[in-house]
Simulated assay, not measured.
Amino acid sequence: MEWLLDNGWILWLVLFLGLAAVETLTLDLFFLMLSVGALAALVATFVGAGLVLQIVVFAVVALLMILLVRPVAVRHLRKGPADQLNNIERLVGAAALALEPVTAHSGTVKIGGDTWTARSADGAALPAGTRLSVARIDGATAVVQPAAAPDSRPAPAGDA
């Protein structure tokens, strides 16, 4: 135990590197915030803080990072040009075709060549063959709604 108190910096360094490594697998920015807390505790160790103060520094810095920095960082990472959207975000608003009746609980649709399980957004039954649009994606299920009818008004003269 005395060795651990004398060499506590090793514990914080291993925790810092371990949490940073876990972050590379999750890419959620949560473990990165904990890792920064461990880095702050490592610095506190070198400044001469006792073990209890090191733990408090870790907890406070990690909590502040999670509550204040992470939401801003996640918001900045999620916004971006349309060409940087992930596959799920690109599907929202896409055209779909009901392959079998879609209800509030079940159904199958074709979206861009792929077959998805589906359910209707408003709970209405949509018959097979209906043109739909994707309202959102819940896990592996597309939540769909009837596609907006194309504009049937004649084009103004001269716009041919």
Rank of each mutant, 00 (worst) to 15 (best):
K79R: 14
G50M: 11
N86A: 07
L77Q: 14
V57Q: 09
P81D: 12
R75A: 02
V69P: 02
V57F: 07
L77C: 08
L97W: 12
R70D: 04
N86D: 05
R70T: 07
V47K: 02
H76L: 15
L91S: 08
P81S: 13
A62R: 04
M33E: 00
H76G: 14
F31I: 08
V92T: 00
A59H: 09
L63K: 13
L53H: 13
E89A: 12
L97E: 15
L97D: 15
V57H: 07
L29W: 12
V36N: 11
Q54T: 07
R90E: 06
A44K: 07
V72D: 03
L91G: 09
R75K: 15
L67I: 12
G80K: 13
I88C: 04
A73M: 12
G50E: 03
Q84I: 12
I88T: 05
A98K: 10
A40S: 12
L32R: 00
D83K: 12
V60M: 01
A96Y: 11
L53E: 14
V56Y: 04
L97R: 15
R70S: 00
L32A: 13
N86E: 01
L91I: 06
L97V: 14
N86W: 00
A95D: 12
V47S: 04
L64N: 07
A95I: 01
V69W: 15
G93R: 13
L39A: 11
G37T: 02
A62V: 02
T45I: 10
F31G: 01
F31L: 06
V56K: 09
L91C: 10
V92F: 00
L85N: 14
F31M: 10
E89I: 10
V47H: 05
I66H: 11
A98L: 05
A38L: 11
R90D: 03
L68N: 12
L29S: 14
L64F: 11
G37V: 04
M33D: 02
M33Q: 09
G48L: 06
L97H: 15
A82I: 01
M33C: 15
A98C: 10
G93S: 10
I88Y: 05
L29A: 12
A94C: 05
L64S: 07
G93H: 03
A94V: 03
A96G: 12
A38P: 03
L53P: 03
L91E: 01
A73Y: 08
A98D: 05
V69Y: 13
L53W: 15
N86L: 01
A73N: 09
